[in-house]
Simulated assay, not measured.
Amino acid sequence: MNERKLLVIPSNLSSEFAARSFSKDYQHEIFSLKHFVVENERSARRFLRQLGYPGPISELHFRTLNEHTTADELNDLLNFIAQQDTGLLSEAGCPGVADPGADLIALAHSRCIQVIPLIGPSSILLALMASGLNGQRFSFNGYLDRDKNRRKRQLQQFEKESAKENRTQIFIEAPYRNKALFNAICSTLHPGTVLTLACELTSKKEWIKTKTIRDWRKCEPDIHKKNTVFLFLSRGFKN
């Protein structure tokens, strides 16, 4: 078995809580690394600096993995992590969850590299914990389709599943498209369906609100260009 390790490191959701997101033992494991695969090198350097990395950040080795990484580049990254213990860092939150890191993790398993997930902040679980919606049966659906018609059909299908199975549906979106998704949700879902918005989690500007679609239609939340998790649960109302 390959003795190399790939540490899957959740990045902070907000800069205020970087050092508080990890135990001392986990910080020690991160601080032992010299090689990292990251979604954004600048953000990764800032995160490690905020975490209190004890050595010179300039002497660390970074390789980039993002949505534009090709299959050949992914194989190069596999060879890179096979040579030494490596940390995998996302832009924010958990690598591999709605994140290109999943492809590298799958390849690491194929090479028998030990994959070690570290405990850290997850916007999805934090939002679910604070929503008051069903936390026993839920689905994370990642990003919805950008096309308005296909997105509407997706929302309708997910609402049917939610009503039939008492299932909480969870989504995320690029912050600059939050308003479009919110408007689509409010115009598509039943007025009695319950929607939670969890905005800027773990930051000083954090807020989490749960209301019916009927009530959300009466207000316009300030979520433009702000990291937001969307969750809804249908109560099975008939149109």
Rank of each mutant, 00 (worst) to 15 (best):
F62Q: 04
F62C: 12
F62L: 06
R63H: 07
R63D: 04
T64A: 08
L65T: 06
L65H: 06
L65W: 03
N66T: 06
N66I: 09
N66G: 04
N66C: 11
E67S: 04
E67R: 12
H68D: 14
H68G: 03
T69L: 05
T70W: 01
T70F: 04
A71S: 11
D72Q: 08
D72S: 14
D72W: 00
D72M: 06
L74I: 06
L74A: 05
L74N: 08
N75F: 03
N75I: 05
D76A: 10
D76K: 15
L77S: 00
L77T: 04
L78H: 04
N79Q: 12
N79W: 03
F80C: 00
F80G: 01
F80P: 00
F80L: 04
A82P: 02
A82V: 04
A82C: 10
Q84E: 14
D85Q: 11
D85G: 13
D85E: 14
T86S: 08
T86V: 15
T86Y: 04
G87H: 11
G87W: 08
L88S: 13
L88M: 12
L89N: 04
S90F: 01
S90N: 10
S90R: 05
E91C: 11
E91D: 15
A92R: 07
A92Q: 11
G93D: 13
G93L: 14
G93C: 12
G93T: 10
G93H: 08
C94F: 12
C94E: 07
C94P: 02
P95R: 03
P95Y: 07
G96F: 03
V97I: 15
V97G: 04
A98P: 08
A98M: 09
A98C: 09
A98E: 01
A98Q: 09
D99C: 14
D99T: 12
D99S: 12
D99H: 12
